[in-house]
């Protein structure tokens, strides 16, 4: 069914107001959109890794979620979900729950809980083939503890553990390409998206992921105004710059087949993304021009690799 924003927005809200995410936090937009992608009669169980979202969306006694929700710890959202998936199987089989009821197991964590500390449990759950969809709200650092670098932090970004200084131009390493690592597990569906336009790209990928049998993965670039250093109202501009510079390419992989879902009319230089955020401010200082060149080279290479895969 074709995407219709009006119909989507008519749906009952399943991620409610009153959560304690910062003003302008992208994660709130992600959660609302994620829940709209679950069909109205299907019951969801959200398994959440420790992080900003967890402390903000379920602070006793206030849950932002309409659906069932479980948080256990930081690194084990996927293994917790594995148990929930097993429960669905066995309780249906034993007639303890309605076998005709659709349950959708959604796991959500930040990049810290996904790329780093939760990587093992994610990999294990993908390999085992449980029927769940993992949403990573990738905000490029450990934001809940105050913007420490993660393996999702891009090269040259300043974080509180990779600050810029006389002898430092921010993080030394490139971002881990988690989406491709997930693809290497042989999942039936994986995609990258972000927050822009009428949210069609997000919705279609999320819906497809949720309604594909087996483990699926949606990696969402999710700006953090405080950690990235930009005015909160600029979120959509930042996301747009990320996709138009090809820093965050939008694509999906269906049974190993790569498909580009967005190609910028004109690929913009990386400065368009970097100059909007104070975490890259040092890159624009005299003598650091090379960082922008290096960032550009990296993005160009990754983009070409991706285009080759999409052919």
């Amino acid at each position: 069914m074709a995407y219709n924003l009006k119909e989507e927005m008519n749906k009952e809200e399943r991620f409610n107001s009153g959560h304690r995410l910062c003003a302008g936090c992208g994660a709130g937009i992600v959660c609302r959109a994620m829940m709209r992608a679950v069909d109205e009669n299907d019951k969801a169980v959200i398994c959440n890794a420790t992080g900003c979202l967890e402390v903000s969306s379920f602070q006793y006694p206030y849950t932002a979620w309409n659906d069932s929700y479980i948080h256990t710890a930081f690194e084990n959202a996927s293994s917790t979900a594995s148990g929930v998936c097993a429960a669905v199987e066995v309780m249906k089989r034993k007639g303890k729950i309605d076998p005709d009821q659709n349950y959708k197991i959604l796991v959500i964590g930040g990049d810290g809980g996904t790329y780093d500390i939760g990587f093992q449990s994610l990999s294990g759950a993908l390999e085992r083939g449980h029927d769940f969809t993992y949403f990573c709200y990738d905000n490029n650092a450990y934001m809940n503890t105050g913007t420490q670098r993660s393996s999702a932090t891009p090269r040259f970004a300043a974080a509180t553990t990779t600050p810029a200084g006389a002898d430092s131009v921010g993080k030394k390493q490139d971002q881990k390409d988690l989406t491709q690592i997930v693809v290497a597990h042989g999942v039936h569906y994986a995609a990258q998206t972000t927050l822009f336009g009428n949210m069609k790209d997000f919705h279609e990928k999320a819906h497809r992921a949720i309604y594909t049998q087996g483990p699926t993965f949606v990696n969402v670039l999710t700006p953090c105004p405080r950690g990235w250093g930009y005015p909160a109202e600029d979120l959509i501009d930042i996301c747009k710059a990320a996709i138009d510079t090809c820093i965050w390419p939008l694509y999906e992989v269906v049974d190993g087949e790569y498909r580009l879902t967005y190609e910028p009319k004109k690929k913009l230089p990386v400065e368009e993304f970097m100059s909007k955020q104070s975490r890259f401010a040092h890159c624009f200082k005299k003598g650091n021009e090379w960082t922008i060149e290096a960032a550009q080279q990296y993005v160009d290479k990754k983009w070409e690799d991706l285009l080759a895969k999409c052919k």
């Binding site: 809200e13 409610n16 107001s17 009153g18 959560h19 304690r20 969306s57 379920f58 006793y60 006694p61 206030y62 849950t63 932002a64 979620w65 309409n66 659906d67």
Partner: peptide, 13 residues
């Protein structure tokens, strides 16, 4: 535990 949906609405952010 909480046994109701969307109780966060009680928080007036």
């Amino acid at each position: 535990e909480i046994y109701e949906p969307g109780t966060s609405r009680l928080t007036k952010t």
